[in-house]
C-alpha cells in the first residue's frame, strides 16, 4: 500500500490531465436545489471518496457523471467528452461503456442468472462474441470470489454476494472509471467486509474509483483524496490523512465527531476480515 502522505505524482513532473472534471455543477429537482456549485477533479488511477450527511447530493453527483441526471448548470468532462453537452442516446451509450456504476441496491437483473447478468453488457453493448464474454465473466467471478455461483440467480444470493456480482458486472464492461454509490449501506455488517475487500483490491490494481460512502475508516484507508460535502457544496477536501487527521473546517470536525463517535480509530477491515488495530497515531484526530 502506498504511504498515505506521499502525493501520487512526485514533484517535478507536470500535473496529469484529470480523467473526470466537474466545474460548478448546479442541480435542482423542481424547487429543491441539491447541488449548489460543485467543482472536482479526479486524476487517472486516483481513488476519491465523497463523504457527508445524507441528502447532500452525493448520489446525484455520481449520476451526473454518467449522464443519468443532467445538471442545470456547470460542465462535466470525462476524458475528452463533455457529458453535459451529450444529447443523443448513442453518445450517452458511448460514455456509459467507459464509466462503470455500482448501485446501493445492487440492481441485478432478477430474471437472468449471475453469468448472464455479467454477459449482457459485453455482448449487447460492446458487441463481443458470447463465448469470449462468458470466459471473461468467469474470470471476473473468480476475482470477486463467486466462481461457484455462476449459474445461480440473484434472488438466491446474499446481499454481499449480489453486490460483488454487481461490481463484477461493472468490471465486465472494462471501464476506465467506476463509480460506487454507497454500495455497503444496504448490507449486513458481516458482509460489508467482503465487498470492501473487492474494492480495495480494485483500487490497488490502479482502477480510478469515485466512492460515495459512509464507511469512514475504509475511506481513510483506501482513498487518495477525500471530499466532504454538506448541503450541496464542498466544505473541505484533501488527502485522507489531512482531512481525517487535521480537519480545517468546524463543520468537518462536527460531522466526523458524529460519524466516528467515541470509538475512534480502533478497527479496520483487513483483507481476510480480521479486525486489525488501525495505527491511530498517524491520524491524530484533533477533536
Amino acid at each position: 500500500m502506498p504511504a498515505i502522505d506521499a502525493p501520487k505524482n512526485p514533484p517535478g513532473k507536470p500535473a496529469p490531465t484529470p480523467l473526470v472534471s466537474l466545474r460548478d455543477i448546479h442541480l435542482s429537482f423542481g424547487a429543491n436545489e441539491v447541488l449548489k456549485g460543485i467543482s472536482l477533479d479526479v486524476l487517472p488511477g486516483q481513488v476519491v471518496s465523497i463523504i457527508g450527511p445524507s441528502g447532500s447530493g452525493k448520489s446525484s453527483l455520481l449520476r451526473c457523471i454518467t449522464g443519468l441526471l443532467r445538471p442545470q448548470l456547470g460542465t462535466i468532462t470525462v476524458g475528452a467528452t463533455r457529458v453535459d453537452r451529450l444529447r443523443h442516446e448513442a453518445e450517452l451509450i458511448a460514455l456509459r461503456r467507459r464509466v462503470g456504476f455500482v448501485f446501493q441496491q445492487y440492481n441485478l437483473f432478477p430474471h437472468l442468472s449471475v453469468l448472464d447478468n455479467l454477459v449482457l453488457g459485453p455482448v449487447r453493448v460492446n458487441g463481443r462474441p458470447r463465448d469470449e464474454a462468458e470466459h471473461q465473466a468467469r474470470e471476473l467471478l473468480q476475482r470477486v470470489g463467486l466462481a461457484h455461483k455462476a449459474a445461480a440467480y440473484p434472488g438466491e444470493l446474499s446481499g454481499g454476494q449480489q453486490q460483488r456480482v454487481a461490481i463484477a458486472r461493472a468490471l465486465a464492461m472494462q471501464p476506465e472509471l467506476i463509480l460506487f454509490d454507497e454500495v455497503t449501506s444496504a448490507l449486513d455488517p458481516e458482509t460489508v467486509g467482503e465487498v470492501l475487500t473487492v474494492i480495495r483490491e480494485l483500487a490497488e490494481d490502479g482502477m480510478t474509483c469515485v466512492l460515495v460512502t459512509h464507511e469512514m475508516r475504509f475511506a481513510a484507508e483506501v482513498s487518495d483524496e477525500v471530499v466532504f460535502t454538506e448541503a450541496g457544496l464542498i466544505v473541505e477536501q484533501g488527502p485522507a490523512a489531512r482531512l481525517f487527521g487535521n480537519p480545517q473546517q468546524e463543520r468537518t470536525r462536527a460531522f466526523l465527531r458524529r460519524a466516528l463517535g467515541a470509538s475512534l480509530g480502533s478497527q479496520s477491515y483487513a483483507p481476510d476480515n480480521k479486525v486489525v488495530a488501525l495505527p491511530i497515531d498517524r491520524f491524530r484526530f484533533a477533536i
Binding site: 429537482f29 449522464g67 443519468l68 441526471l69 443532467r70 445538471p71
Partner: peptide, 8 residues
C-alpha cells in the same frame, strides 16, 4: 428536465 429518460 433533470432526468434523462426515454422510457414512458
Amino acid at each position: 428536465m433533470a432526468h434523462d429518460t426515454h422510457h414512458p
